[in-house]
């Protein structure tokens, strides 16, 4: 009786897990299958195509849909710069908060803590108007420029990331730096030669989380960017499939597969690091 119970419990446990796995994975299998379909039309799509072809992929890379490559390039460029610069700026700010005692430190910390609570997208109307104003005065960071978009992203990235990094820096013992100071190092030298190497894990986590977050950002990019050549992948793909989903379904599927791969690979290769960052409170969309 007990033995039988155990078998049953094992079976239903596995059954539930497998149902959940199918629920989780199905859309991805579906899009992979679709991307190898010979027909463009959404109507004749088969999940497991009888005669798989690379036509859809070809059309994205060398064919008529190759603006896709521009979108990928734009997205990678913007995400990489945003993540890199924000890690740099945040590590500086976090170091200052963690190691120096100065007037206004508490106010600064409180401000950062409060500001990171509010999604930047709440100010989207104002951001749009500010960028329009930039457009007149300093055109190279105005509307419809990647530099402008990166500036906006950087602003949104500082609060949360600085806060997380400061927590990590606090956990690094001060005795190492003190030794360096005795040897005559400046505080910047101590920061560069001691803190940064020791803080590598958090720098990587924040870089990755920021990279993935920027890669997938839709709202701000779609508000600020206009024109085929300027789009990021999120904005471009939506418009690409939006009006012509019935005859662009195949290329879209291929684009979806290619556009996901890079993020999925990063995610899986660093999953343990990212999860430790997640439970630390770094929730990003």
């Amino acid at each position: 009786m007990n033995y039988k119970n155990k078998i049953w419990s094992k079976i239903w446990r596995n059954l539930i897990i497998w149902i959940a796995i199918i629920f989780a994975v199905f859309p991805i299998l579906f899009i992979i299958g679709t991307s190898f379909n010979p027909a463009n039309s959404i109507n004749t799509t088969q999940i497991f195509p009888g005669n798989p072809t690379l036509e859809n992929y070809k059309s994205l890379i060398v064919g008529e849909n190759n603006t896709f490559l521009i979108w990928v390039w734009n997205t990678l460029k913007i995400s990489f710069l945003t993540a890199g610069i924000s890690v740099f700026l945040c590590s500086l700010a976090a170091y200052s908060f963690s190691r120096f005692r100065f007037k206004g430190r508490r106010m600064g910390l409180l401000t950062i803590l409060l500001v990171q609570m509010f999604p930047q997208t709440l100010g989207i109307t104002a951001i749009f108007l500010i960028m329009t104003w930039f457009n007149d005065k300093i055109p190279f960071i105005g509307l419809n420029t990647h530099a402008g978009l990166i500036l906006v992203y950087l602003g949104g990235a500082i609060g949360m990331n600085t806060w997380l990094m400061k927590g990590y820096f606090d956990s690094i013992p001060k005795s190492l730096e003190e030794a360096a100071y005795v040897d005559g190092a400046t505080s910047f030298k101590a920061f560069r030669a001691i803190i940064l190497p020791l803080a590598r894990p958090i720098l990587v986590v924040i870089f990755i989380i920021q990279f993935i977050g920027t890669y997938s950002e839709y709202m701000i990019a779609s508000t600020l960017l206009k024109g085929d050549k300027m789009y990021t992948l999120a904005v471009g793909l939506r418009l690409f499939v939006g009006q012509h989903y019935d005859d662009r379904w195949g290329p879209f599927a291929a684009a979806g597969v290619l556009g996901s791969i890079i993020v999925i690979v990063i995610f899986y290769s660093l999953q343990d690091l990212i999860f430790s960052g997640l439970t630390g409170g770094a929730i990003k969309e």
Partner: peptide, 11 residues
């Protein structure tokens, strides 16, 4: 950056 792109827009 934070002030220019988050605090100012919200204000």
């Amino acid at each position: 950056f934070m002030i220019a792109m988050v605090v100012v827009p919200i204000g």
